[in-house]
Structures are given as C-alpha cells and as structure tokens.
Simulated scan of single mutants.
Amino acid sequence: MNEPEAVQSLAALAQNMRLRVFRSLVVAGPEGQTPGLLSEQLQVPAATLSFHLKELAHARLISQERDGRNLIYRANFDRMNALLGYLTEHCCQGESCSASPLNRESLPSTPTENRVSNSPLNVLFLCTHNSARSILAEAILNSIGKGQFKAFSAGSSPRENQKPNPLALTVLQQAGISTEGLHSKSWDDFAQPGAPAMDLIITVCDNAAGEVCPVWPGHPATAHWGYPDPSEVQGTDAERLEAFRVTLHAIKRRLDLLVSLPHERLESMALETTARTLARQA
C-alpha cells in the first residue's frame, strides 16, 4: 500500500457510522452480511447505509457480491492488513516490536477483553422512568450473570421521587430474584466523572431508544431490545401482575442467551453485533 491509498482508506474510516459498518463486517468474517441485516443491527436507515457502503467500497475496504436476490458485503481483509502493514512498517526503526500486526497476541488487550477475563462486563439498561422494564433487566442479569456481568439501570426522564413499580418488585420476588438495592435514577448519573464505565448499554423501551443520550465514558457498545410497557396494561390486579410476569420472562429469555455466549462473542469488537443480534431472538 502506498501513501495515497492509506490516506483514502483512513479517510473512509474517519466517520462514526462508516467505522461501525466496517467493524461489523470484520466481525462477520468471510461470510459477510446483507444490507438488511446491517441496517437492523446498526439501526441505520437503508439509504444512509447504502451511502456508507459505497464510500467503503470506493476505498476498497469492502467488497460486494450478489447471491441470488441478495447482496452480500464483506470486509476486504487484504486491504485492511495492507493498511495495518503500512502504518506499522519500519516501526521502532525496524526492530521487532509488539506493534506488529502479525503479533496481535502481544498487543495490549482492550478494556472489554480485560474485563472478560478479570472482572464482570458492566451493562446498563435504560428506559424512560427506570421503574419497570429496566429495573427487571437489572435484577435478572445480576441474578443470572454468574459473576461475568454487573448490571445497572437508569431512566432518561425519571419523575421526581420516582421509585420502582411495586408490581415489578413483586414479580421479581415471586421468581426468587433479589430486589435489594433497586432504585430509580437518571441516566445522567452514569455520564458523570467517577461513574462506572459501561461495556454495553441496552435500551428496553422505544422512547429511550429515540432520545439523545449523554456522552458515555469509554464509548460502550449499544443495542435496543424493545418490550411493551407492562405498567400501561389496564385490567384487574391479577391481569396487571401477569403483564409484568410476561415481561420478566421475555427479558430473561434474552439475557439467558447473553450469559451463555462464549467469551469471544463478548469481546469489544463483537459485543455490539452480538447484543443487536440477540434483539431479534427470544
């Protein structure tokens, strides 16, 4: 690779969404992905995605192939490795060093990779009021996380003196899940200096997913797992309680899949794709 080609490649990657598209294709490997799947995983409109794919293809960072009625996009690993080689050529004055792209085992591990092996992954669940769905998700993951996950929850617009919905606490207790320490709080609490750094942020209601989020320290992976709001169900006390129980089981099914995944699916580059894939399951 020469200098103009390196500049072209780096320029194509110097945009948030294009970088996320490219990384998703890297994670997908040789099988590649369809535009529809990419659009769903990255939560980006098809027209916007098409523009970014064209820019990446023009820089020869990705390839396109038709498979029947589908288009398949793949990362151009030769081009990626050529860029890495150009950037690290003659590194350390030609001496052998840990920065070589061929010696990835000696590179410093990412924060998420360190956390996978040494401490839990921090997961923040968000909804509007932090009283029902996000509270359920926090409690469930802390219960089944097997020490690999530490769950938190917050709301985009919690009411003054907001507290967890009593029906949410009831179904958790009936399921044998601890409710100790559960309380409603604003998502701003997790954007402050000194707040625990999140590895994954999951919105569990459509309102929170559509709002402008704070700037999260560490640029965590994000995903949206939408669930109907059980607190909006009308009916008898038993019917309302059943709505919360149904929501609890729906959330738990997806979290059961998350905690059962192998470590490599939870590493930093794969975590966002993994979480967004789970949004289509269970």
Rank of each mutant, 00 (worst) to 15 (best):
M1C: 10
V7L: 03
A12T: 04
A12S: 08
R20Q: 12
V21A: 05
R23S: 13
R23Y: 10
S24P: 03
V27H: 05
T34D: 07
T34Q: 08
G36E: 11
Q41C: 04
Q41I: 07
L42R: 02
Q43M: 15
A46I: 11
A47I: 10
A47E: 12
L49D: 05
H52W: 14
H52L: 11
S63T: 02
N76D: 06
F77M: 15
M80C: 09
L87M: 08
E89Q: 14
C91V: 09
C92K: 07
E95Q: 12
C97Q: 04
S100C: 10
S100E: 05
P101K: 09
L102H: 12
S106T: 11
F125L: 01
L126D: 01
T128Q: 05
N130V: 09
N130L: 09
A132S: 14
I140N: 00
N142M: 02
Q148T: 02
F149I: 00
F152A: 02
S153C: 04
S156R: 00
E160M: 09
Q162T: 04
I177H: 04
T179I: 03
H183G: 10
K185W: 13
K185M: 13
D189Q: 15
P196Q: 09
I201C: 05
I202E: 00
T203S: 10
N207H: 12
G210F: 09
P217L: 03
P220H: 07
W225G: 00
G226F: 04
V233C: 07
G235Y: 12
D237G: 14
E239H: 10
R240G: 10
A243L: 12
T247V: 10
A250Q: 15
K252H: 11
E264M: 03
R265F: 11
L271M: 06
E272I: 06
T274S: 03
L278H: 01
